[in-house]
Design a protein around this nucleic acid. Structure first.
Lengths: 239, 239
DNA sequence: CGCGCGCTTGACTGTGGTCAATCGAGGTGG
DNA sequence: CCACCTCGATTGACCACAGTCAAGCGCGCG
């Protein structure tokens, strides 16, 4: 159940056998969610945090005019709303973008981990810090990158993150979002997204067929996106 | 030196006398920075974290074409780059937007806090989670709010945050950024920022004179911004 | 008094949004 | 097996918001 989470954590630091066992013991139950089903609802005060075992999920916020902005994409191995452990009230919702397998960890158990295992606590803290670093990168992309570069950057990021949890095959990965959903990630209209995608395809940078994205020219895509993976902290060192 | 930090922490949970003393003892030294001086440089691996005692600072990233995006604004009492404690390598720079008084805390000392005082550790963790929540709100603002509403939202947020650390006077607060810098926060051009500010002024929502912003119509500003302070977690409860 | 920085304004341009129609694949009922 | 329906992808026409360029203003400082 926690294999992907371990791959995730182990991309940043060593996780002892004991810590792995402790993590395993934290799971209180698990559940499957259908596409478009809310995993956590805005405004709720859950007594547990959710760990994404498999699938794609998104944090989102609706505006009063009915438009939606997705503020984060989560993949297998992400401790999706570890935040709620300390933030208490959800200021946004989390929705399944594909069929999702989710495991639950009680906040009370997270609290006792924080009391008894400082190293593991720091690793969990780190996960939330990386979420923050990703947020900052998205802010940069939204503010100062062209839409074309913004899309390219997102593809680069997803590819690197999926690689960590072994969800890539060569330069391809499964990507279950619709164009409308991707537009909500990028903060642009679906029409403009579609037209920009045409350009990326025409230039031979990527293909997106049948829920599968393939990077056709990684160096050029990375250059276009000005992608620098430093912010993902993919280095194993003591934390 | 840590009065503002305490006000900050105490807006989320009770901080014991002992914890206050511990925090005080963490400061290893302090320094003043001039406007436009880098407090932390991109790519560095500092062995300490910086606490903003007084002033305004900004996280930023430069694009290859020379444009800049500011990803966060920090005010007195913010534990500015607590992140570096676990992220290790700075993926962005931090610059003084006004004369800044900064205190330093060694990472080694933060580590021992994380080993010995779980509750204080959780409070520090919470500070970084709130940073993340603010980032998400900025993403929403950049993606789905009009520029007018985006500015309004930022003013609402700054006002509430400054109120916590007693840096407001009525509905006014000191705001030392230039329009160019504010444009880099919002991810828009200075010309468009200027024109949008005219509208906000003309509509009697706010004034900005002499580095002082005054909110002239708080209810209408809040409505325009669709501002909901939930994400700032301004509730005292056990964490 | 002149210079420079930050603010303001106008003219022009282009990126990206809205509206609306069409296409195409997969699913369902007759 | 086929007609029909629905959802997502695609395209074109049109338009508005926001960017660029460039000039002018006004205050503070040397």
């Amino acid at each position: 159940m926690i294999e992907s989470l371990l791959l995730n954590l182990e991309s940043h630091d060593v996780v002892s056998e004991q810590e792995q066992a402790l993590l395993r013991s934290l799971i209180s139950r698990d559940r499957r969610f259908k596409v478009d089903e809310d995993i956590v609802t805005e405004g709720s005060r859950p007594g547990y945090s959710t760990l994404l075992v498999d699938g794609f999920a998104a944090r989102y916020k609706f505006m009063t005019d009915g438009t939606r902005q997705i503020t984060a994409l989560h993949i297998a191995g992400d401790f999706v709303d570890l935040h709620a452990f300390l933030l208490k009230t959800m200021d946004h919702g989390i929705v399944a973008m594909s069929p999702c397998h989710v495991a639950f960890v009680e906040h009370a158990d997270l609290k006792s981990v924080s009391e008894s295992n400082p190293h593991l606590s720091r690793l969990l803290w780190l996960e939330t810090l990386i979420d923050g670093a990703i947020h900052r990168e998205w802010i940069v992309a939204m503010g100062r990158r062209s839409k074309k570069a913004h899309i390219a950057h997102l593809i680069c990021e997803l590819f690197m993150r999926l690689q960590v949890v072994r969800r890539t095959a060569g330069l391809s990965f499964h990507f279950p979002l619709t164009q409308l959903e991707l537009a909500d990630v990028l903060g642009i209209s679906i029409v403009h997204l579609n037209k920009t995608l045409q350009v990326l395809r025409k230039e031979g940078l990527l293909s997106w067929i049948n829920q599968t994205i393939t990077i056709l020219d990684w160096p050029r895509l990375q250059t276009l996106a000005q992608f620098d993976p430093t912010y993902l902290s993919l280095a194993v060192e003591p934390r």
